[in-house]
Structures are given as structure tokens and as C-alpha cells.
């Protein structure tokens, strides 16, 4: 079931070693940077920077491609539809009935598409280099209640298993002659129940066993749960965080305080 592979890839790069909290903040800061930048060129620069980081994180080609598939579609949709709905600016390139296509609108569409590309890919840096366990631990360290963190950890733990269960159910119903594409809304709804019903019952059975396991392992015995390996910021983490902050603050000040068009 390679499809339910974690996006995370084991490796030993500086991005893997970075404190997950620093990575979360850096991703948020770089996302904000994508909104601060308004020029196509500077956004392309940011996108290249993100891809450089992905390269340094030794992101696997197949995983990047899988993740990019959905984003690229959305980017294409934005770039194609933007000029159709935005008649402002000159020169006008074409008029088709009520639709006016202008050159600046085309550039604005491409700019927005590239920005969405930046927002999407910057997440990969976090997801490709941080294990789910570290991610949940970082969120708990950042103030997420432990029981919510545990709920999240359980969700991530069971996601691939339920993915396979879903595929198995879909196969089992197809083997009984069920066709997804056939019929009206009502017959289709019944078909969805044929797939989701067994999945839910399987999940509820899992939940019953799981709650027993949690109880028997003294879940909730202490409110301040301790960890074997605590998260601790190192010098390198502070340097990385400072760089990320500078990357946002410098362009933001340049644009908003000194009105540099970037």
C-alpha cells in the first residue's frame, strides 16, 4: 500500500535535525512572506528557494510529484480562470462577448498561481522532514492539550490502516457487482453506504478496543505527561529561526515602511 506512505522520509539532513517547533514557525513565516511579496519575479525567487530547501532535505522525487499533482491542477485553474473574471487594465487583448481579456489580468493570474505554489510547497519542507510523532509532540509543547495531541496521534496512526480498509471494502463491493458510476443520486447514496457503513463499523470496533488499551495503560494518570526524549532548542535552531524571521521582516519592512515595490 505505497499510496498511504507517510510524506515523511527518513534522512539525516539539517532540516531533519531542526526542532519541529522551529520548522512549524518557519513554514508559517514563509507562508506570510508569500503574501508580502506581490511581484511575480520575487515570488518565483521564493519558490526557487523553497525547492532548494526541498532538494537539501533530499525530498524523494516520487513523493514530491504525488503531492504536487493536486497543487499544479489548482494553479492551472487559477491562471486560466483569472483573466476571464478580471476585465481591469490595459492593453485589452481580446473581447469575446461579455468577457474581456487584458494583459495585466493574465499576469495577475500567473502571480496568484505562483503564490499558491509557494504556499503549497513550503508545507512539504515540514511534512517531508518531520515524523508524525515529532509533529504531534511539537504541537503539545506549543500548548496543545495532551489529550487532544493523543487524539491526533491516534488519528495519524490509524489513517493508513483505514485507507487500506477502504480500498478493500470498495474492492469487495465491486466484486459483488456494484458500480459507482451508475444510477441517480438515491441509488448512488445507497452505494456510498455500502462502502462507508462497513468502514464505520470497523472503525467503531477499533475505538472500543483502543479505549480499553488506553485505560489499561493508565492514560490520564498524570496531567503533566513526561516524555523520554524532551524537545530542546539548540544553537542551530535559534539561528534557523532568526533567519526565517529575517526573511519575513526585511521584505515586509521594505514594502510597507519604505514602499519598495517587491
Amino acid at each position: 500500500m505505497t499510496r498511504f506512505d507517510d510524506l515523511y522520509t527518513e534522512a539525516d539532513t539539517f532540516l531533519h535535525r531542526l526542532d519541529p517547533r522551529v520548522k512549524i514557525f518557519s513554514v508559517l513565516l514563509l507562508s506570510l512572506l508569500a503574501f508580502v511579496l506581490s511581484h511575480l519575479l520575487s515570488l518565483i525567487l521564493l519558490l526557487s528557494f523553497i525547492f532548494l530547501l526541498l532538494l537539501l532535505a533530499r525530498a524523494r522525487y516520487s513523493k514530491t510529484l504525488f503531492a504536487l499533482k493536486f497543487v499544479l491542477r489548482f494553479m492551472a485553474l487559477i491562471a486560466v480562470l483569472w483573466p476571464i473574471f478580471d476585465p481591469s487594465g490595459t492593453p485589452v487583448l481580446a473581447r469575446l462577448g461579455p468577457v474581456t481579456i487584458t494583459e495585466p489580468a493574465i499576469w495577475r493570474g500567473i502571480t496568484s498561481a505562483v503564490r499558491v505554489g509557494c504556499l503549497a510547497t513550503v508545507w512539504y519542507i515540514l511534512m517531508f522532514t518531520t515524523s508524525q510523532r515529532d509533529l504531534v509532540r511539537a504541537l503539545v509543547k506549543l500548548g496543545l492539550r495532551f489529550d487532544f495531541g493523543l487524539t491526533l496521534a491516534i488519528a495519524l496512526r490509524f489513517f493508513p490502516a483505514f485507507g487500506s480498509v477502504m480500498e478493500s471494502i470498495i474492492d469487495a463491493q465491486r466484486a459483488r457487482g456494484m458500480e459507482f458510476e451508475k444510477g441517480g443520486v438515491l441509488t448512488r447514496s445507497r452505494r456510498y453506504v455500502a462502502v462507508l457503513g462497513p468502514a464505520i463499523v470497523t472503525a467503531l470496533r477499533t475505538a472500543d478496543t483502543l479505549s480499553l488499551a488506553l485505560e489499561s495503560r493508565a492514560y490520564g494518570a498524570r496531567k503533566d505527561r513526561t516524555y523520554l526524549r524532551d524537545l530542546r532548542m539548540s544553537g542551530g535552531d535559534y539561528v534557523a529561526l532568526s533567519i526565517a524571521i529575517a526573511l519575513l521582516v526585511v521584505p515586509a519592512v521594505a514594502r510597507f515602511a519604505f514602499e519598495v515595490p517587491i
Partner: peptide, 13 residues
Amino acid sequence: VGYVFQNPDHQLF
């Protein structure tokens, strides 16, 4: 072809 899957809970609904 009648195909009976390993886990009956994956098809009974």
C-alpha cells in the same frame, strides 16, 4: 466469479 474477501466485515453493510 464470486469473490469472497478475507474479512467479512469489509463487505457486510
